[in-house]
Design a binder for these strands. Sequence first.
RNA 1: GGCCGGGUACCCAAGUGGCCUAAGGGAACGGAUUGCAAAUCCGUGAUUCGCGGGUUCAAAUCCCGCCCCGGCCUCCA
Length: 513
Amino acid sequence: MPVLRLTNTLTRTLEDFRPIDQKGKVVTFYSCGPTVYDDAHIGNFRSFLNADVLRRTLELLGYEVRHVMNITDVGHMTDDEDADGGGEDKMAVAGRRIAEAKKSGKLPAGSDIDPSNPFVIAEFYAARFLEDARHLGLKVAIEEAAKPGSMPRPTRYVREMIALVERLVARGHAYVGKDGVVYFDVKSYEKYGALSGNTLDQLREGAGERISAEHQANKKHPADFMLWKPDPSHLMKWDSPWGAGYPGWHLECSAMAAALLGEEIDLHSGGEDNIFPHHECEIAQSCCASGHAFFARYWFHTRHLMVEGMKMSKSKGNFFTARDLFAEGRTPAALRLELIRSHYRINSNFTKQGLADCQTQINRWAKSLETLEAAARGAEADRSKSAGPFERGLADFTEALCDDLNVARAIAAVNVAAGVAAGSDGAGACPVRERAALLSMNSVLGVLDRNVPLASAGDADLAAKVEALLVRRKAAREAKNWPESDKIRDELNALQVAVKDGPTGTTWSKIVK
RNA sequence: GGCCGGGUACCCAAGUGGCCUAAGGGAACGGAUUGCAAAUCCGUGAUUCGCGGGUUCAAAUCCCGCCCCGGCCUCCA
């Protein structure tokens, strides 16, 4: 089995991946998932899908991956001026947005949700997230249907979080500030800053300027972060030894990872913005509570996604959710490939053009698979034949992924194999083995099984209209009435429908711009 | 200001000292196919790697300087 080499944020070096498991079989993997106060956008999904590619690569290599991804249903704060726990709760903001949508009739049919109940809002967006994630082939979300524990909600782990805070207080790593808030004492953990490269001195002078002076006065050190905030007026609150309130936002991952995977895990992933403070704080909490030297052995961070060469933002009009693109008729496969095809440690540039490129590519692979399926039907694997293009390509494919998840090179291996297979050199290989090799490649890329646009409202109407026009066009063509046939084709094009005349008849598809 | 990642053809994107006169895909162009198209298939495509120096027998790859883009420095994937 080839060894996977990964860049570990913790050491900033390329390392051989070796799991903690003595037998070298089981891998424990925790991924930071979405906060469900709105629909996830494609930047969120790049991070989640890269984690998925890592998980699938581990599985290709024969590991058994225990993967957990949280769905954060605690709102936390929105106010930049008071990021230590003040400001308005994001769930409250989402509630207002939903109330607006309700009033203006923009809420999807059949959804009748109470905008004043944060738990209901969170479940509403969580369900939408799971739907998008499953379309995109996020394995942990697909698995969640049978194993609900794999995508835990922090609101169901408040007891564990409180226990963690109690342990930190007991061990002298946390204290109650003058304001009654429980803070983590960063000076009590000498390795604080190891992940992000920050030092406590630099943080003291930090240019973030988001923390008010009076707030700082309650803490021993400016970098001390909140573990529990008593606040009986808060939208989401729970009883605790420090009064009714809510947990600090770093706490949930430490508590749930320990509860579901163990106090020391192999892998932890997230977007690059999570490195500091989120993951830095998780490490401090987890290690101080457990006494272990490590929380996660390897830290995997995906860089941010740009859109059409710019930072994605709502005001620039280049902000997309997965649902936006599905509604345009884009296939989940194309979106998935566009989001995973460039290296996870560089900013990738999402473009509509790129999405179309990916679609073309996937269609060619689908054709290869179709050809192999036809040839393999009813056949047995023939060991006497030498390896065909896909079997040979699988070695390159795997090696590319082992090289710090070089997906671009892995994709090239599929293309090269598909090209050889289509030519005369591909003849003579065993189709059963070839098909198996291509499916192994797809077990990581995850595109061939989701290469169809999602059905949308109005599809049935359109289909009926198109079929009627095609019947007329067929008659015109049989009569060699080319002007009439072309006129009907123009009408179809006007309906955003492309016509394909093949040897076995005419097919059509929606045009995606 | 501190720390970190990046700039390769029209676009996306591999390559980190000789196998690079730079992988793979898309667009474009030429051909096959087609009533004409679309789709598909075949072919063509950077003597050059942000800019300027340097090291070396040899540099896209190493060193120095500069320009540009992006991230973090208590919302964020």
